[in-house]
């Protein structure tokens, strides 16, 4: 990383590091302030440049010749290989930028939540008590979560996976997270079963050829999941009609075989064709965003 004659890294125990960090932060915020002075007509260009440069990294990573057999201490030979090495070295750094930036933006989401719910409590709007409950639960989780986290990181030697070492913080966090949050997740996840049932009952009707085809396939697949139905067809076709010969022609008519046949010869190709379209669509949209060709809507 020592590309420029500048110290990019430091030891964790270095005392100068805070100076570096503060200077970096000041430069960063000064840059941000400078950007805010950009004239209106240049704004699109600024945003477009940032977008283009970030996209360019992955595009280059793809089309730039990849160095062969790169070992950690190798020195690159020639300009092409130097760029190749640099790109490879940057991957572990750049790949996390999206999640770091999204994490910084989380505050916006929290701001929105607080705005809606504090507003409701302050104005005593309909259901304001529930909003109060939400804020209370949020604060509780936040407090106990960080209490538990700091306690665990301060006492690295204690094995907190053993319940014998637990204190109030761990019990509290376990109750809130495992006892409540996870249970609620599971409850909401399982509620889908009910909705599948009512949706099928209401909408799976043989109104048109298409609906009938979809219904028929779904029914065959559902039957094949019932062991008893598969067992019956296996008994009928293999044991009775073919006299126990597992390789006989009629053996292809067991539910398990039919459902596999449908999956392999209809489900796979039809979904694949659909995915091709989606993949090309995503690429096209990616290109339009990367090159700032979209107008209107988000990119207005």
């Amino acid at each position: 990383m020592n590309l420029l004659a500048l110290q990019w890294s430091f030891r964790p125990e270095d005392s100068t590091k805070w100076t570096y960090l503060i200077v970096a932060a000041i430069i960063g915020f000064a840059f941000m302030f400078a950007l805010s002075r950009v004239p209106t007509r240049m704004r699109r260009v600024v945003v477009g440049t940032f977008t283009f440069l970030s996209g360019l990294f992955y595009v280059l990573l793809y089309i730039w010749p990849q160095p062969i057999d790169k070992k950690p201490l190798d020195i690159p030979q020639g300009p092409v290989e130097s760029v190749g090495f640099l790109l490879q070295d940057m991957v572990p750094v750049v790949k996390d930028f999206t999640s770091i930036l999204t994490a910084f933006l989380l505050g916006l989401g929290v701001y929105s939540l607080l705005r809606v719910h504090i507003g409701r409590v302050a104005r005593r709007q309909r259901d304001w008590q529930y909003s109060g409950l939400l804020l209370l639960c949020m604060a509780t989780m936040l407090t106990i979560g960080y209490w538990d986290f700091f306690m665990q990181s301060a006492n690295k030697a204690v094995d907190y996976s053993d319940r014998a070492n637990w204190t109030t913080a761990q019990y509290g966090f376990d109750l809130l997270f495992d006892g409540m949050l996870q249970q609620m997740d599971a409850a909401m996840f399982s509620i889908i079963a009910f909705f599948i049932l009512s949706a099928a009952y209401r909408a799976f009707r043989i109104r048109s050829i298409e609906a009938t085809i979809m219904l028929g396939t779904a029914l065959i697949l559902m039957l094949s999941l019932m062991g008893i139905a598969s067992y019956f067809t296996d008994w009928l076709f293999v044991q009775k009609l073919a006299g126990g010969n597992a390789n006989a022609f009629v053996g292809n008519f067991t539910l398990a075989e039919i459902s596999n046949w449908i999956k392999n010869n209809f489900q796979v190709p039809s979904l694949r064709a659909m995915e091709f379209g989606i993949g090309i669509g995503a690429l096209a949209m990616g290109l339009r965003i990367w090159l700032s060709l979209e107008r209107g809507g988000v990119s207005a």
Binding site: M1, I68, P72, L73, D74, P92
Partner: peptide, 29 residues
């Protein structure tokens, strides 16, 4: 063709020792 020998640079301080733990940024593969 899969083996290429290149001149070696000096190790950074964090790469001394076992060196299996790749540093969090740059350097490691």
């Amino acid at each position: 063709e899969s083996k290429v020998e290149r001149p070696q640079r000096e190790k950074n301080w964090w790469e001394e020792g076992g060196g299996d733990a790749a540093p969090a940024a740059g350097g490691g593969e």
